[in-house]
């Protein structure tokens, strides 16, 4: 079995997803969590573009990707904004200390 470009891209997508989830699972810093979320989104973007390339609708795929980027930027901004408030009111960015609500 030869490595077709599509397969390579799929492996890349899965790799990015893995990296992102790894980051989400082990990061203790709130900023790093947001960055890991961004890595996840990049995986999805690569996937979208690859899909468009595969079925010949690359224009549509690009516009979809652009929309995802916009939506995702808003989420990232909000995540960081929450981080700022958390830092201000709780004095920490360590997500392990963000566990008062449990049980």
């Amino acid at each position: 079995m030869t490595l077709s470009p599509l397969l390579i891209i799929m492996i890349g997508v899965i790799g990015l997803l893995g990296a992102g989830f790894y980051g989400l699972l082990v990061s203790r810093n709130l900023i790093k969590i947001v960055v890991a979320l961004q890595v996840l989104v990049k995986a999805a973007l690569v996937g979208l573009i690859a899909a468009g390339n595969y079925n010949g609708q690359i224009n549509l795929a690009q516009s979809l990707a652009l929309t995802v980027i916009i939506a995702d930027t808003i989420v990232a901004v909000m995540g960081i904004a929450l981080g700022v408030q958390i830092r201000r009111h709780m004095g920490t960015l360590d997500v392990r200390e963000l566990s008062k609500l449990k049980g």
């Binding site: 989400l24 699972l25 969590i33 997500v95 566990s99 609500l101 449990k102 049980g103």
Partner: peptide
């Protein structure tokens, strides 16, 4: 229900 964000993602 640990309350840890990492665990929630898990």
């Amino acid at each position: 229900q640990t309350g840890q964000v990492n665990w929630n993602v898990a």
